[in-house]
Design a protein around this nucleic acid. Structure first.
Length: 432
RNA sequence: GGAGGAGUGGCCGAGUGGUUUAAGGCGGCGGUCUUGAAAACCGUUGAGCCGCGAGGCUCCGGGGGUUCGAAUCCCUCCUCCUCCGCCA
């Protein structure tokens, strides 16, 4: 959410600031008129309330002194009616203002390139060279079943499409990857690990920006205010909802492994094969709470922290700076990390690292007390960032496809072996 | 799930209808004193909003109600605690 102050000052600039982003221009115009009316009504209502408070106190005083206070009582009562009328109008205006504010996307950072879709994204870095195969590399949806470690059909029986059973080495590797990522981020990158609830309420989803606009992407527990978390970003960012943090503890860095649940409405027909787009997947998430002046540097660091996982696993990837039109609703700036998948001969997203500036902090009321020499500092909204470090299922896919051999086996990357009992190679059933 | 109890400023805690614009304490900050520190003493110290300003308004877990007037009374929801039941 953008601040009212910012909207007021930049109302005529908003079309330029939000160019390329999805929003309703008519809502902006209405916002301006409503805001002015709201402030006028407020001044009037507060004046009346002030008078009523005084008159009301007079009633008490006179009564105590045994005097007649009927005139004051009547005046207070009629003021009360006037106030109630003004307040009803105010509440209606407030509701409308909030509706339009909630629906406005974040203003992109100035370093974000123009563009309407992924064609406007900019590759800022390419790391590693895709391996030259002496044979036709298979896609993981062929490799996995052949190795007997990915079972799509039985998962469809148990639940439905876009679910998978991992068995044997796939389950082991998945577990090892989580462990490797969590160890790396906690021991080498300074993150504090959390195991948050996987179920979140609507207030939390509003705080990070999934609600109210994107409920169709979520699984809701029937008859409740609870949803399966679509990403650990939601529970972890909302850790500090409605809090005022001390400046000294910033930057705060958390990492958390959670399963993630997404309804994938509107993705019908896309990535229907394999592990790429599932209703349930594991992810290690990185979340930071930082001072506003630190957020650009911290986005670079967080993105590096995610890249380090790919480098440890010897996976070729590239870093892409998303253009204005391809960013998420809440983001001010986003880097996607894309891993090379030989089976598709393409780079595919494996991490998305974003700075939200104060957009989420405002929605979730997360502030910090700026320390000032000789006394009290001001409370300010802090900046939040997060990124996948990494999406575990897609990392498993990348390992299977990049490290496959001509005999159908898959070599386990060196860095992962200590986490899976020294397993060096995954072999097809029956192979020696 | 059943029965009780409780939610007040960073923390503890007083307040059961009208100078409470929330007492007091702790903690924090500033100062006096001191070579320095501690102690003691003095002062200061919640959040948000409206207003050019003076100033004003709102907030005592959330929401609703009663009243001229609500932290205080009523309804409802949430959370926590105790006991019972159930359970990994």
């Amino acid at each position: 959410m953008l601040s009212r102050d910012f909207l007021r000052k930049n109302l005529d600039q908003m079309p330029r600031l939000l160019r390329g982003r999805a929003y309703d221009p008519g809502a902006l115009e209405r916002w301006g008129a409503l805001d002015a009316e709201r402030r006028a009504l407020m001044t009037s209502a507060e004046g009346k309330r002030s008078e009523r408070n005084a008159v009301s106190a007079e009633v008490g005083k006179k009564r105590k002194a045994g005097q007649d206070a009927d005139a004051e009582q009547e005046r207070s009562r009629s003021l009360g009616e006037e106030i109630a009328a003004l307040e009803a109008r105010l509440a209606a205006i407030d509701g409308e203002l909030e509706e339009s504010e909630k629906a406005l996307p974040n203003v992109p950072h100035e370093s974000v390139p123009d563009g309407d879709d992924e064609k406007g994204n900019v590759v800022v870095k390419v790391q590693g060279t895709p391996r030259a195969f002496a044979f036709e590399p298979k896609a993981h949806w062929d490799l996995g079943p052949a190795l007997g470690i990915l079972d799509f059909e039985r998962a469809a029986k148990i639940t439905g499409s876009r679910f998978t059973v991992l068995s044997g080495a796939a389950s082991l590797l998945n577990r090892a990857l989580i462990q490797l990522m969590m160890d790396l981020h906690t021991r080498e990158h300074g993150y504090t690990e959390l195991l948050p609830p996987f179920v979140v309420n609507s207030a939390s989803l509003f705080g990070t920006g999934q609600l109210p606009k994107f409920e169709q992407d979520l699984f809701r527990l029937a008859g409740t205010d609870w949803f399966l978390a679509p990403t650990a970003e939601v529970p972890v960012t909302n850790m500090h909802r409605d809090e005022i943090l001390a400046e000294e503890i910033l930057p705060l860095s958390y990492c958390a492994y959670t399963p993630c649940f997404r309804a994938e409405a509107g993705a019908a027909g896309r990535d229907t094969r394999g592990l790429i787009r599932q209703h349930q997947f594991d992810k290690v998430e990185l979340v930071k709470f930082v001072r506003p002046e630190d957020s650009p540097g911290q986005l670079e660091r967080l993105t590096r922290d995610a890249e380090t996982v790919l480098e440890r696993l010897e996976l070729p990837y590239r870093r892409v700076l998303l253009c204005r039109g391809d960013m998420g609703f809440s983001s001010a700036k986003t880097y996607d990390l894309e891993v090379w998948l030989p089976g598709q001969a393409a780079y595919r997203e494996i991490s998305s690292c974003s700075s939200f500036e104060a957009f989420q902090a405002r929605r979730a009321a997360i502030r910090f007390r700026r320390s000032a020499p000789g006394g009290k500092g001001k409370n300010e909204f802090l900046h939040t960032l997060n990124g996948s470090g990494l999406a575990v299922g897609r990392t498993l896919v990348a390992i299977l496809e990049n490290f496959q051999e001509s005999d159908g086996s898959v070599t386990v990357p060196e860095a992962l072996r200590p986490y899976c009992g020294g397993l060096a190679s995954i072999r097809p059933p029956g192979a020696s």
